[in-house]
């Protein structure tokens, strides 16, 4: 398959999406077009403009370090697909590996 601007397979893998070849082709078309559109922005000269991480003014307010009650364990585990002795149970992501730090 011809490589477009976007590596759809890679992105799909990162997002855990399983795409059929047809879907992949279709998404390739859409994403490439979106990127082309966004690329118009690169025509603007921003050499004098300071980089901006946020569009708003202001900064975050901090919270005092005072404990507050959370939610009930039974309630939380009640909506989980599976549990085991008050622990959430999920399929292991890394078979054969003892621990991940």
């Amino acid at each position: 398959m011809k490589k477009g601007k976007v590596d759809v397979q890679h992105i799909a893998q990162l997002a855990r999406l399983h795409l059929t070849p047809e879907e992949e082709k279709e998404l390739q078309k859409h994403l490439d077009r979106m990127l082309e559109y966004v690329e118009i922005l690169t025509e603007v000269d921003v050499s004098d403009v300071e980089p901006m991480a946020y569009p708003h003014e202001g900064s975050q307010r901090l919270r005092s370090d005072t404990p507050r009650p959370g939610i009930n364990r039974n309630e939380a585990l009640g909506i989980a697909p599976d549990e085991f002795f008050f622990l959430y149970r999920v399929p292991s992501p890394l078979k054969g590996v003892k621990d991940k730090s």
Partner: peptide, 9 residues
Amino acid sequence: HTDDGYTLL
């Protein structure tokens, strides 16, 4: 990680 292929959290 349990021996029977699960992860407990």
